[in-house]
Design a binder for these strands. Structure first.
Length: 155
DNA sequence: GCCAACGTTGGC
DNA sequence: GCCAACGTTGGC
């Protein structure tokens, strides 16, 4: 999952109650479909900071609640308000995620670029604009290996 | 600040 | 349904 830290950072997640936050405000159909259908409770998450000097994977999180309607779409006050979405027919979805661990130090985009497996990650693809994208098993393991970490998502 | 990539919008 | 125009994203 990718976020501009000025909008919502990994630190923000850590400071959230129970270290849980909802991944709201996604307004892209491809990402919506992932949130609604693909992402399962217990899935591991690489939390990536974008649009900054040193774009990096900051840490790990996991999904604690599967796709449910994004209520900010119904909130007139929200900048993500969308009149096309209603409680009867929600268009946009979100999941809840929970902090797991820091990557210390963060795995930078430079790190990813020079890695045989990670250089092929979705987040490295040109023009990629999704705030949610799939990470495969090899990529997940490769990130953990870079920091000599045990897999925290084994259930 | 530049610019490529991509999604969305709207005229036709 | 096509496609040009436009806005946004995000690395550099």
């Amino acid at each position: 999952m990718k976020s501009e830290p000025s909008c919502f950072s990994f630190e923000d997640l850590k400071r959230s109650p129970g270290r849980i936050a909802c991944w709201d405000g996604v307004r892209n159909y491809q990402a919506r479909n992932l949130l609604r259908e693909e992402i399962k409770k217990g899935d591991g998450i690489l939390f990536y900071h974008s649009n900054i000097k040193l774009p990096s994977i900051e840490g790990l999180a996991k999904v604690v609640r599967e796709g449910y309607p994004d209520h900010t779409a119904w909130d007139l006050e929200s900048e993500h308000y969308d009149p096309k979405s209603s409680t009867a027919n929600p268009i946009w979805f979100m999941v809840d995620i929970q902090y797991l661990a820091d990557l210390d130090p963060p795995v930078t985009r430079e790190d990813l670029k020079s890695h045989p497996v990670l250089s092929k990650m979705g987040v490295m693809k040109r023009g990629n604009r999704l705030s949610v994208m799939p990470v495969d098993e090899r990529e997940w393991k490769a990130v953990l290996d870079l920091r000599d970490m045990a897999d925290p998502v084994v259930s």
